[in-house]
Design a protein around this nucleic acid. Structure first.
Lengths: 369, 369
DNA sequence: TTGCTTTTTACAATCGATTGCAGGCAGGCT
DNA sequence: AGCCTGCCTGCAATCGATTGTAAAAAGCAA
């Protein structure tokens, strides 16, 4: 079955008795008008019959456009990034492009290595989901002259286009929500400050608190991971008297807050209300179902891909930032504060008070955002 | 900053005063010995100084090997497939290959389209996670003479290598577990029979039940999705007297079983024990935490990539099937059956009895497995 | 010095498609 | 008939790296 000699343009030309260049023109939509209609038809028919498939490599080499887009992620398996990749793949496919993905983790030098590798593959552009607020990888891409779009996070200096969620506004929604429920002493488990998401959510929290005339209480987590949320949550519980709500910068951190509450024998939302960020899959199923700020990661991926394709088409001097509006999803982890009635601790039959299983250490640190 | 004229082999040759072919040989580890040591050193230095980066496209065109691997998934964002992709990317990167991914959904014609596109990009091989038991896409790949490895699912005819979990053994673990707890009337919510996972888990269930001398009760779900699990679960509840346990072919289906139990006012594990399959992220956090059969999807991806690279290196006439052993993870959704005491229905304060939120329709149908 | 082997380097073809340029041919016009 | 215009098609260079072969240079023995 395997066609011993692969069908090339030249072979098609021989088969139809014309020059390869004529075949090329006939096969290309845009140049077909340069070829006599009957000849074009004959060529098309022959291509069909022989099962011709163009070698994109050769075309790319000649034209300088590979129709490949490099995508660099910190963690493919993370529920935040896989929908982003899905959105990217969707838009790229519709435009005839394909994503080449690299799972680069947090290591900048590794990221740079992947960038170089992708550039060697002559990708037409890059989408980075890995950047920190001051990012050397972006500089590297810029130096190499490749169109770049950032997604989910962006860099401080704004040298390239980015698609992000309105992180500050998201925290605003969260603060307003719990304030409306009657909370006044509200803490924040912040994300890493070197990531734009961490920084902006923290400042959004601060601004919203100030607007309500409330004092901020912030503890920063080292990473976006469940375990990393426990310590900061405990510190808030220990140092902030009268605390009734904790807003986490991320759903995984919120789950860490759950762990912390349990270890202190506190209930949610009875004693402490909790809000997350991202609306990861299944957080509507944890106990209690998590109130969180929903971000459409798939949409972010889509927009990022669209933006990049535009920049590639237009010559890369647009440089925009697209900010997607987040949305609050109210579930059962938030409620009115138990006004001074003291903290209750109820144990339902045969289970942990909050339904949480014992803490299980993850092998791969959950990164996130 | 952007280097106006990209550095090519020829330019490097001019800079060092030798012929391009000599530069090529000096740069390639394997041919460097053909070049005088001092010349080679000079060339390396110049390459370093000028920031030379090879054009892989050109090399691929000449050598016929692109170092690109196509990966076709039914759903990138699905928690089953994203770790698989992660494992693939990990192994490929270590070997100097890059994955080009396509999110092709369930549509065979679309899958074929993607396959052709990837082949046009001259990928050195393909990894398919989409195949059904009788798969036309595999035939297509075979006809086009591209090395192929299947992952997670495999096709009936076994024409190509595959890496899968031991689905039958997994169901065996599940059956043995609930039988050991004292259950005797045990139902199975099966996955689609046109997928190897659905078929094998179903037959594994059947075999294990037979071994224990128990009668099987099977209802098949149309898709691997939470919603798709509800109907079959209800049918089991309605038609199987004395039912005390339901084994789902998939975690998402198991969550659908939860929904069904709730709609009938039944508790888990009080009235019905439930077992899932896959150990998706966060199923340890739902209420009650799900007992499930763990599959290391990341390992599956790794093995698939390794297998494919081997086949590419050895000439593709190996054709193996790697079967990974699954593992039972016992959590709180299974327990001793409440021997004939009748079904209790307990409503904890201010929540649904099982802690489940109202059913929320997903926009994208969860595929899975 | 001659002759022969062994390095080392240059030449040129090649992978497959694209594209500027020129040439051929037909038809229309004067 | 002569000339011009416009439509098709062929020619050949090109993208950048790889590689078989030939040639040049160097080394060595006699």
């Amino acid at each position: 079955m395997a066609p011993s000699p692969p069908i090339t343009l030249k072979r098609l030309a021989e088969a139809t008795g014309v020059h390869p260049s004529t075949v090329s023109r006939a096969l290309n939509e845009k140049t077909r008008h340069l070829v006599a209609a009957d000849v074009a038809e004959r060529i098309l028919a022959a291509a069909q019959a022989l099962g011709y498939t163009p070698n994109r490599l050769a075309a790319s080499l000649r034209t300088g456009r590979s129709r490949l887009i490099g995508v660099i992620l910190p963690d493919i398996a993370n529920p935040v990034f896989s929908p982003i990749l899905g959105g990217i793949a969707e838009v790229l496919a519709a435009a005839g492009y394909s994503p080449v993905v690299a799972d680069a983790g947090d290591d900048t030098s590794l990221q740079t290595l992947f960038v170089d590798n992708l550039i060697n593959h002559q990708v037409d552009g890059l989408i980075l989901a890995t950047v920190t607020r001051e990012d050397g990888v972006v500089s590297h891409c810029l130096a190499r002259g490749v169109p770049v779009v950032l997604v989910n996070r962006f860099e401080q200096r704004g040298r390239v286009s980015a698609v992000v969620s309105d992180d500050a506004a998201g925290m605003c929604l969260a603060v307003d929500h719990v304030v409306a429920q009657g909370h006044a002493v509200i803490g924040h488990v912040a994300g890493p400050h070197h990531l734009s998401t961490g920084e902006l959510r923290r400042s959004g929290y601060g601004a919203a608190m100030a607007r309500h005339g409330l004092a901020p209480h912030v503890e920063e987590a080292e990473r976006y991971a469940r375990e990393a949320g426990i310590g900061p949550a405990l510190r808030l519980l220990d140092t902030v008297p009268g605390l009734t709500a904790i807003l986490a910068a991320n759903d995984l951190l919120a789950l860490g807050v759950y762990d912390a509450l349990h270890s202190r024998g506190l209930s949610c939302p009875g004693d402490i209300s909790v809000v997350g960020h991202n609306d990861m899959p299944l957080v509507d199923l944890v106990a209690p179902p998590l109130t969180t700020v929903r971000i459409s990661h798939r949409d972010m991926g889509r927009e990022a891909a669209r933006l990049l394709l535009e920049e590639i088409a237009d010559g890369a001097d647009v440089r925009r930032r697209i900010v997607l509006p987040p949305e609050l999803v109210t579930r059962a982890s938030t409620g009115r504060p138990s006004g001074g009635a003291g903290r209750r601790f109820v144990t339902p039959l045969g289970g942990r008070p909050d339904g949480l299983p014992p803490f299980r250490r993850q092998k791969r640190p959950g990164l996130g955002d």
